[in-house]
Structure formats: C-alpha cells, structure tokens
Design a protein around this nucleic acid. Structure first.
Lengths: 108, 108
DNA sequence: CGACTCGGTAAGTATTGAATCACATAGCGA
DNA sequence: TCGCTATGTGATTCAATACTTACCGAGTCG
C-alpha cells in the first residue's frame, strides 16, 4: 500500500469514526426526519447540551452533517442521504448475528 | 428514548466502531477479493501480524468478518456483502467534501 | 439595560483504544 | 522429535476520546 492509499483510508476512517458512537447514531436517526436544533436533539437523546454540541461538531467536521442558524437556534441536518443506508447495513449485520445465535441455541 | 432503544444504538455503534480504523478499512477492502490469511493481510496493509491479528479479532467479534482454519493458516473473509456498500457511502461523503472545497476555492 | 435561553468552549478526569514486545500454542515437514 | 512458520495473547506504554462542570458570547424580549 502506498502512502496515498493509506491517507485515503485515514480520511475514510475519520468519517466512519464520526458515526461510531451510540449517541451519534441516535442523532443521525433523529435527523432523518429533518433538521433539528441542539436543544431538541439533546432532550431526545437524553444527554447534556454541551455533550451533544461536542458530538455534533465532530459529525459536522467530518462532513456527515450540515447546519444553519435560525435566530437563536442552530439547526443541524443530514448532509448525505446515504448515511441512512449505511445504518441499514449495520442493522443487517445485527440481524445476521441474531439469526446465528438462534441457530447455535437450537443445538443445546 | 427508552432503554431498549439505547441498547440497540450501543450494539450498532459497536459494529460501526469495528470498522472505524484505517487499517481495518484496508483489511475490509482487501477481503473484498476473497478470503485471505493473516500473514498476507499484514504484508498487504503494512502492519505487524500481532497488530493485524488484534484488528481481525475485533471485527470478528463484531460480526463483520468470519474465519476458518486451513492447516497452519487462518483465512478471514467478509461476512456481510453490504459492508462494501457501507464503504461506498463513505466514499460519497469524501467526494462531496472535495466538491465543496473546490467550490469554496473558486471564490478566493 | 437586565434577565433569560441557546449554543459552544476550556479544563480536568476517567475511560478506552492502539501499537509494541515477548511469549505461548498449533500445525507442518524434515 | 525438532525446528519452523502462522497465529493469538498478556502486559505495558502511549495517545485519543467521552463526559462533566463551569463559564462565555450571541441573540431575544421584558
């Protein structure tokens, strides 16, 4: 692997990393309904605003989210619709795990 | 958000986390051609075998990869084809970032 | 102006994760 | 059996991340 390829993987890993947290996944799901302000997001996911603000800035920096100001509020939104497909794949992996666990349990 | 939903997000985050590392992304890409042994993987991604073995075990535990023994070697393979779509989405995000950066540069 | 809400940031702490070295185990062949 | 290779595992070190508390700036409305 040459250096360019390695750098490309680092950039991609940064994006994946930006989604790799339960709160951040919950935020992404919540934003699939449309843009939301920080206060609504924080009450929905059940975390402090300062913490949610951190998570949002990470996802903003990685390019997953976008934001715009509306008076006193800042509205965040999904920037790439494929993120949701991304999560569907994760759900598929989970489902497959459950299937396999069931299959193993049958042999007890 | 109730407790079950929260737990579901934690499980999903664990899966995403298992892919959120440059070496692990490189491994996933490499395995898209078919199953490979640890030694070939480690030479391909340019990391020590013990380190690669660690990364592989993480992805194995998260359900992304599968493995089988073949004599002295252990062959790892992708377990869910959708992981590759997953990465295509990441590439899309990157591409969009590049487009936006170009657009910003035009206004200098 | 003064009080309030929203959003973000700084510092500190605790936790987690990655990489390395050294070593252990398993299978193959001489 | 002995040596060799492939793989995995502790233990350690070091860096990155998450969460909290406290605080600051911007905007709103009385």
């Amino acid at each position: 692997m040459d250096r360019q390829t390695r750098q490309l993987y680092e950039l991609k890993a940064q994006i994946v990393q930006a989604a790799a947290h339960p709160i951040r996944l919950a935020i992404i799901d919540f934003l699939s309904d449309g843009e939301q302000c920080v206060c609504d997001i924080s009450t929905h996911v059940g975390a402090k605003r300062s913490n949610v603000s951190r998570h949002l800035s990470v996802m903003l920096a990685s390019g997953i989210l976008g934001c715009r100001k509306d008076g006193l509020k800042v509205l965040y939104s999904l920037k790439t619709p494929c993120i949701l497909k991304f999560l569907n794949c994760v759900t598929d992996v989970l489902r497959q795990q459950v299937r396999q666990n069931r299959a193993v349990l049958k042999h007890l």
